[in-house]
Design a protein around this nucleic acid. Sequence first.
DNA 1: GACTACTGTCATATT
DNA 2: ATAATATGACAGTAG
Length: 793
Amino acid sequence: MESHLVAFVIPISGFSGNPPAMLSLKKYLTEGLLQFTILLSLIGVRVDVDTYLTSQLPPLREIILGPSSAYTQTQFHNLRNTLDGYGIHPKSIDLDNYFTARRLLSQVRALDRFQVPTTEVNAWLVHRDPEGSVSGSQPNSGLALESSSGLQDVTGPDNGVRESETEQGFGEDLEDLGAVAPPVSGDLTKEDIDLIDILWRQDIDLGAGREVFDYSHRQKEQDVEKELRDGGEQDTWAGEGAEALARNLLVDGETGESFPAQVPSGEDQTALSLEECLRLLEATCPFGENAEFPADISSITEAVPTESEPPALQNNLLSPLLTGTESPFDLEQQWQDLMSIMEMQAMEVNTSASEILYNAPPGDPLSTNYSLAPNTPINQNVSLHQASLGGCSQDFLLFSPEVESLPVASSSTLLPLAPSNSTSLNSTFGSTNLTGLFFPPQLNGTANDTAGPELPDPLGGLLDEAMLDEISLMDLAIEEGFNPVQASQLEEEFDSDSGLSLDSSHSPSSLSSSEGSSSSSSSSSSSSSSASSSASSSFSEEGAVGYSSDSETLDLEEAEGAVGYQPEYSKFCRMSYQDPAQLSCLPYLEHVGHNHTYNMAPSALDSADLPPPSALKKGSKEKQADFLDKQMSRDEHRARAMKIPFTNDKIINLPVEEFNELLSKYQLSEAQLSLIRDIRRRGKNKMAAQNCRKRKLDTILNLERDVEDLQRDKARLLREKVEFLRSLRQMKQKVQSLYQEVFGRLRDENGRPYSPSQYALQYAGDGSVLLIPRTMADQQARRQERKPKDRRK
DNA sequence: GACTACTGTCATATT
DNA sequence: ATAATATGACAGTAG
């Protein structure tokens, strides 16, 4: 964002030629700040443009009209003067280009995001030998399984730097574990990575805190695991959840892994291709088998959480669902951990984004639709898993808010299933935090453990910039209380000049973030927008009616000068900006023009105060003279008093040469010459002041117009964002179902399905999919956990 | 009488 | 260096 801003602000300041440092700085602080604010608001940072945009509100008024007027030092008029760019605001050009470019870029990005990489799906069953090394039992490339679900092959030649990095890292880790499939031509494509990364970040945004994947948590968990292995369950964390686990899970003596009792124990070293699996499936059990995954499948999910989080935390988090009891202390501890992790996350990601996202009210449409409740990410995950366990057919349900919010009811079933650790897709996917949305619920649980950082996270960090944009938009949307449903209404709203303000009144987060200044765009939006519009209309009217062009003014002055000393015309119209046509230059309308001449003769006040036309009947000449006299400016009076032989208009408007010529023609006293010079100076300054005020007004109007344009752009971007999110959700659902389908069709050498709690599919860097034990995935994730962190910090 | 908008003017900066 | 111009600040006037 910063880079954007820089690019944005600098051009603006560029209009001001090369002012002194102070002025430059001032410009930056005023105009620049205003622009910056607008931009920030557009991007989604809580600056509450709405508030400032309504020129009715103090802030804007202060900025624009106040002593430190924002436009004061702006040299727009210069640009306009030189370029004659009256109608075009200099900034608008940049803004248009800027946002257009951005929009196009985002659209382009969105394009590949929506593509589901079709890749060969290679299922690898990896096992871990006693030493902890893992070897792919059958690194046969023939395992490749064509995904029947219509994944599109996206293996593109384009590989971003980050992509290659991550892929490499991923591959290395896999190799280390010995579980790496032979290098395949099709690595994870950038699209894959992007998609995953996006989803992952979205999950984070939506409340599936990355903390779940945090290394420290996993470390804790690992430690706990160790303790479990070594000493059993005396762990501090081993509370009810642990007991529950102990009761319901079989613990692998070697690895400390726990699985559901019913799950086939032992780590399969057999790698089955999906084709084989399918064949087996067809031969043995007809399709639909996947749907029958017993509750133990859910264990996958739970297993993962253990990895990402310390067992204690996990248990605590799960326990509410499982047992419904937990110690307050644990909860607090958990929360603190979460918060600390969140903070770290916030540092990585857009602050406002995280703020908004995490603070997003439960009722927030977006969050409900796309994410878990902020405060209960894990629980939500668990329930999700539960829900998803049913089978692929229920995938969609899993994502529905109702399902996500599955209450404790399902906890009982979860408990038995919650293995302490397991590698899951999450290691790959989960690592990217996609788990929440992307993967089958079962995986989600796991996802928490393995979480992004640990596993190669092929996706992580790939789309930093893109993701930032995404997050920004997301933040904006969420912050604004934007939801897909509202999207359809946005256009009308904004078109109707209701302002950008999306209803954020229900979003406490936004309030807190902006310290209430944002006090709901929605509530203020209507008023502010209306105020803004009214202000604009009034401005427009004023600008159109009240001010004539410079040329017009000059013409008037010329005419006046030509007429002679004080022609009526000039008297009534000269001082005002009013369009002569509008005012008709009628004496009794003069007051409308606010022609406050300083040299009103006191004597004239009583005699001729707005004399109606009828009053000019008799003695009209006298009265007219008085009136004219009254209309004379101070300088005119002085000139007359000093017997200046030519009109003030000439004095003021003649070019220097002619002016000097004129002076030379007459024998003028020093006093006269001085007065003439003063008259000329004041007259010119008066016009200058008029021009200056006019420019101010124009500047304000232009700013207002820009603001409106920006608001429209913002609204449009939000609409686009909604569309994108919609598509993204669909994609996630698709991927989830695909995962479940693939996993469900896998069969071991005995023709039995793999337990989701023990095995998980993992994306390899080459685009293939490995079936690996969860423990292995966890290890991998832990190994790689540091990398991303280091990179980020 | 207080307030506001409009103007003109001055001092000063900028062109 | 000078003239022209721009602009903030101030004050007067009218509504």
